[in-house]
Design a protein around this nucleic acid. Sequence first.
DNA 1: TAGTCATATGATATCTAAATACATATGATA
DNA 2: TATCATATGTATTTAGATATCATATGACTA
Lengths: 121, 121
Amino acid sequence: MINKNILHACHEEGFKEGEVYNAYKVFFGTLVSESRLRIINLLRKRKMNVSEIMEELKDEQTAVSHDLARLRKCGFVEVEIDGKFRYYRLNEKTIKPLMDLIDSHMSKYCVHILRGNKHER
Amino acid sequence: MINKNILHACHEEGFKEGEVYNAYKVFFGTLVSESRLRIINLLRKRKMNVSEIMEELKDEQTAVSHDLARLRKCGFVEVEIDGKFRYYRLNEKTIKPLMDLIDSHMSKYCVHILRGNKHER
DNA sequence: TAGTCATATGATATCTAAATACATATGATA
DNA sequence: TATCATATGTATTTAGATATCATATGACTA
């Protein structure tokens, strides 16, 4: 079920317009982070536990856990507990297709963004 | 054509890994702005010129133009010049389906984000 | 059951980047 | 040439993110 409008998504839940926009800000803000993008990118291949992610990214445990907390909060990833390990997987339903779409967009506009052009009148 | 990986998008263009992630940061950073989200939301309905957008959002001309410049740069919108007016339309190919996907994601997770839950163990 | 491994959470300080505001430029039309 | 519609440049303020450190928890292990 696709919503016609950003606001429809949460309005029914009783949130005000400004609050809904805040949720979108938190959601997109989650992606304005190289380390979180790297995690997402890793998880596109397979599920991984925290130690594996740390190893791949050569990053600190607290940093990785903080990033994962934010990703979880926004529904980018899901956790699966396996003994003392926690395996993270990408949200297949929405985030996987989302990232595919964005990659396809970026394959066209990445260059434009990086070159910093303002106009092409 | 869908890319398997964030990096594939721009690697062929000769950009380094860090640069590619920067482009993604700029892209998503564009969406961490209530005013820009409002503009996108407006343009989902129909194309509009700058004055019309100003009127709808009750915002200053310079503010709106700055926002539009950023949206243009990242490929969210396209311009169509009509005399002294400039009509903006949403990028139909990628951004429209993208926003639909995100809305559908948010209809599920918006509440979770707004409540600020960290965990649901 | 104490220890340790895997992971999460909290708090704060620093740094970056974004919103704001103001000045000015440009291109089209009347 | 004056005015309308819009774009661009830049400095200031301010919010938000990253980094770091300290600590907590839950599970397994000797």
